[in-house]
Nucleic acid binder design. Structure first.
Length: 312
DNA sequence: ACAATTTGACCAGT
DNA sequence: ACTGGTCAAATTGT
């Protein structure tokens, strides 16, 4: 990966555009005496978040070029080249070619991890979904870990997989590990992204819940926005999280109006995204997330990660 | 009926 | 041998 890919470039542009729009919105609010201090502060936070994300993307690429692991601090997305070597130890023959190929490289697949913190009562920042459809195919209790690890793969026959695990130390942090690279229809994915700014325009002009960016409340395929605006992100994030990690029953309890009910003022929410590069990646720019909630206190208490119902 | 998830078992890596 | 990743049948939901 010598250069920033088109996808990342678009994401970056999108992020900056988003920041600009929110700045404009802030300007409008500043001129409106009726606007609350909280609202203005939130907008400010959003702008900061956008800039940080954009910088993260840039620093990520910079570190790639210098072959350094992007160490980070908060809000860093990092990717590295995968090791050139890969073991070729044939495994099952019954799976399709792609999976077979990937299984050979289980340990050497391009891989990177994002950590996302979900802070109760805070606004969402950070990528929500990557626009790809993921299907859960395994869950495993990890030794020494309080919470099980759930594994997903792309539903489009794509090589990419991801694992989600909740941090033991800080239950509000979720570690998402992406493995492999997307070979599915990235074009549509990019188109999807390109439509974001438009949607965001709507969002910024209308801070209320917008159906245009609201996927079906309990959608199974996570085809939501990547880098949604924080305001909408709260909802999208929640729904993605819920639909992905919580039982459908729980999801139905949490999504839609119920969810909004939990967020009477979504602008006061903060979800701090903490992206941390852990391993490597070759070219998959997947930076979206779908994460479980970690805010046990604010969200449904029964959704504790260690509950059976959490991942089920 | 179809799709998604769960879960026990198998396999690979260390 | 142990741990983690994946498969696939069974189960559950839509």
């Amino acid at each position: 990966m010598e250069k920033m890919g088109e996808w990342e470039q678009r994401s970056l542009i999108n992020e900056l555009t988003q920041g600009r729009e929110v700045a404009r919105q802030l300007q409008a609010y500043l001129n409106a005496p009726s606007s609350s201090h909280e609202t203005r502060e939130l907008l400010l936070l959003r702008i900061q978040a956008s800039y940080e994300k954009a910088l993260s993307m840039l620093s990520c690429n910079a570190s790639l070029s210098t072959d350094q692991l992007p160490q980070s601090s908060e809000l860093t997305i990092g990717m590295l080249e995968s090791p050139p070597s890969h073991s070729v130890s044939p495994r099952r023959e019954d799976s399709d070619h792609d999976f077979k190929e990937e299984d050979k490289k289980r340990k050497t697949l391009p891989r990177w991890t994002q950590q996302v913190r979900v802070t109760p009562g805070a606004a969402l920042e950070g990528p929500l979904d990557d626009g790809f459809g993921w299907r859960k195919y395994g869950q495993k209790d990890i030794l020494g870990a309080k919470y099980p690890r759930c594994t997903r793969r792309n539903v489009q026959g794509c090589l990419a997989r991801k694992q989600v695990q909740r941090s033991d130390e800080d239950p509000t942090i979720f570690e998402i590990t992406y493995r492999g690279t997307h070979n599915c229809n990235l074009a549509s994915h990019v188109n999807h992204l390109s439509g974001i700014s438009e949607t965001q325009e709507q969002v910024t002009s209308n801070p209320q819940r917008s159906s245009s960016s609201m996927a079906a409340p309990d959608m199974k395929v996570e085809d939501n926005l990547v880098f949604s605006l924080p305001v909408m992100g709260n909802i999208n994030f929640a729904e993605n999280v819920l639909s992905s990690f919580i039982s459908p029953t729980a999801t139905s309890m949490m999504n839609g109006d119920n969810l909004l009910g939990n967020f009477p003022n979504s602008e006061t929410q903060t979800l701090t995204g903490v992206y941390q590069a852990v391993t490597s990646s070759t070219n998959s720019p997947t930076v979206g997330l779908d994460l479980p909630f970690g805010s046990d206190d604010q969200f449904h208490p029964n959704f504790a990660f260690d509950n059976n119902g959490y991942f089920s």
